[in-house]
Structure formats: C-alpha cells, structure tokens
C-alpha cells in the first residue's frame, strides 16, 4: 500500500470514529455501553508508531476530543498523550506486537480510561455506585472498544508492513 493511501485511509477511519462517538443516536445504548472508538484507534496506531510519534498522535486526538466532549480542564489533552506513550512503550519493550497483546492492552487501557474519567468527574458518588458503573457500563464499553481495536489491528498490521511510514 502506498504511504499516501495509508495516511488517507487512517484519516478517514479517524473521522468515522469521531462520528460514531459524538452523535445522539446512542447506538450501543441497549447494551448499556458507551465505547470510545477514537481511543481504540489511537491505541492500535501507538502499537505501530514510535514513542515520539505516538505521544504527539495522542496529543492531537486529545485536543480534538476535548473540543467535542464535555470533559473539562483538558482531561483528554493531558491523558491521551500519556496513554499513547504508555501503549507504545508496552508494545515495543514489554509485550510482543501481536493480536493477543492488542486485545489485552486495549481492554485494560479502555477500562482504566473510563474508570478514571468517571472517578474524576463524578467524585460525589459512593462505592456502590462506582462498582455498579464499572460492571454495568465500563466493562461493556471496554469490551466493545477492544473488539474495534482488534479489528483495526488486523488491518493496520497488514497495511503497516507494506508502508512502515511513521516508525
């Protein structure tokens, strides 16, 4: 795949993740889930990009996410670059870059992201509400996000092998 085509396809996928994320249709409402496809997208790309490029990819997505989401104080601008840097370090130095590590990393990172976001923005909740949220909403959201990540990983692994653009 040509480098330009690879970048264009990834830009389209990024746009689709935001469209799926920030609409009022609540597609996964019946599953009580609110997956974050843009998070899954940057997790997968970070597994292939260098640490430096992953950090700035996370920063760009964090800034755009904060302009659309109702989070405050630049929550995503601060946390997404750290997430991308961490995922890049994990997949390059600790885990092998394969589908199993993609599944584990995306599940853990998504679950942690939703949990941290909930605890930061809703600090008045009690322990029972936290557990209810983690089991009823956080876990299904993390599972759907990681399913999307795994599917995207299969595409990126094939495409990246041909291109090797930003490593």
């Amino acid at each position: 795949m040509a480098k330009r085509k690879y970048i264009l396809i990834n830009i389209v996928i990024a746009l689709l993740t935001f469209i799926l994320q920030y609409n009022s249709f609540n597609i996964f409402g019946s599953l009580n889930a609110t997956p974050m496809f843009s998070l899954g997208f940057i997790i997968v790309l970070s597994m292939f990009f260098s640490e430096f490029n992953s950090f700035f990819l996370g920063l760009l997505f964090g800034i755009i996410t904060d302009s659309v989401a109702t989070t405050a104080f630049g929550f995503n601008t601060i946390f997404m670059p750290l997430i991308c840097l961490g995922v890049s370090l994990l997949s390059h130095y600790l885990f092998n870059n394969n589908i199993k590590s993609c599944t584990v990393i995306s599940l853990l990172v998504s679950f942690s992201y939703f949990a941290v976001r909930f605890l930061i923005f809703y600090p008045s909740v009690n322990a029972k509400e936290v557990m209810t949220y983690l089991i009823k909403t956080d876990l299904p959201s993390a599972i759907i996000t990681s399913v999307f990540s795994v599917l995207l990983y299969l595409f990126e692994k094939r495409a990246f092998k041909d291109v090797q653009p930003l490593r």
């Binding site: 904060d66 302009s67 104080f73 630049g74 601008t77 601060i78 670059p81």
Partner: peptide
Amino acid sequence: FLVVLILSLSFAFAGSRMSPLTDAA
C-alpha cells in the same frame, strides 16, 4: 507535556475556560 498541562490547568481553574489549543481545535 508540562507546557500542555500547565496551560490546560491554568485556563481551567482561572475561569473555566477552554485552553487555547482546545479552543483553536
């Protein structure tokens, strides 16, 4: 990261404003 962190937090706690980066986006 430190620049972004200081920028975001200072704008947030000094009037609940979006940081310039988020505002530009």
